[in-house]
């Protein structure tokens, strides 16, 4: 009986007509069911933990960027606009409105797409979507370009939008601006490539 059942099942299995491998459909499903990415608002809340927002009106009329000794980054800016973008051209257009000559991010990992822009007059924050399945939840890259004049001491910063410890932060000065990079998805090599890329942009300028 057992052998008969085994034989019967094997026969039935062989009779199942297998359709051809639907690679295109699998790729499409893969794309469609990408790990649920946190909405941009959630990402801001998670990545840049909102500590307090100033109520002092006079302070809000200026832009401040500080790096407190407790870690992270604190910034405030007036007339900040937040918008979604599709390509680099929109970043270039937005950068023209800044009151300093911005060196735009370069040397980013191939396939990185800009998605959102945080635009002030002394500060521009660009949100990128990093490519690669391996990054999963750490696919966001924030690059802030700030006017060096806005860099203040921690003591002067009264109003705070402060980066939490959720994101790895690095900052350096390139040409006429302060570059602040916040991401958990970037490798050291990729970060170094961005530094090199932006440095090249500065040196190639006439």
């Amino acid at each position: 009986m057992h052998a008969e059942l085994l034989e019967c099942c094997r026969l039935a299995r062989e009779q199942i007509a297998v359709p051809s491998f639907p690679l295109a459909s699998i790729r499409e499903r893969l794309e469609r069911s990408a790990p649920r990415r946190r909405s941009i608002v959630a990402a801001i809340v998670a990545g840049l933990s909102l500590v307090t927002i100033a109520t002092a009106a006079e302070v809000l009329h200026q832009t401040h960027v500080t790096f407190p000794s407790s870690g992270g980054m604190v910034f405030s800016a007036d007339n900040i606009r937040y918008q979604s973008i599709r390509d680099e051209a929109e970043i270039r257009t937005a950068a023209e409105r800044l009151n300093f000559s911005a060196v735009l991010p370069a040397g980013l990992p191939e396939g990185t797409k800009p998605t959102h822009l945080l635009l002030g007059t002394d500060l521009i924050g660009i949100v990128y979507d990093l490519p690669g399945e391996q990054r999963r939840l750490h696919h966001l890259l924030w690059i802030f370009l700030a006017n060096p004049n806005t860099m203040t001491s921690a003591d002067r910063a009264r109003e705070h939008i402060k980066t939490g410890r959720a994101m790895t932060l690095s900052h350096w000065r390139v040409g006429p601006e302060e570059v602040i990079v916040a991401s958990n998805g970037l490798t050291q090599l990729e970060l170094a490539a961005i530094k090199r890329g932006m440095q090249r942009e500065v040196s190639s300028e006439p």
Binding site: R13, V18, I26, R29, L30
Partner: peptide, 28 residues
């Protein structure tokens, strides 16, 4: 994947879906 899915689900169309979803999971 398809044969196993077909054997459990008992339907060709359903098996396609299951096998493809399984492939996506393997991919990930």
């Amino acid at each position: 994947a398809y044969r196993l899915a077909r054997s459990i689900v008992g339907q060709d169309a359903g098996a396609q879906d299951v096998a493809q979803d399984a492939c996506v999971r393997v991919y990930r």
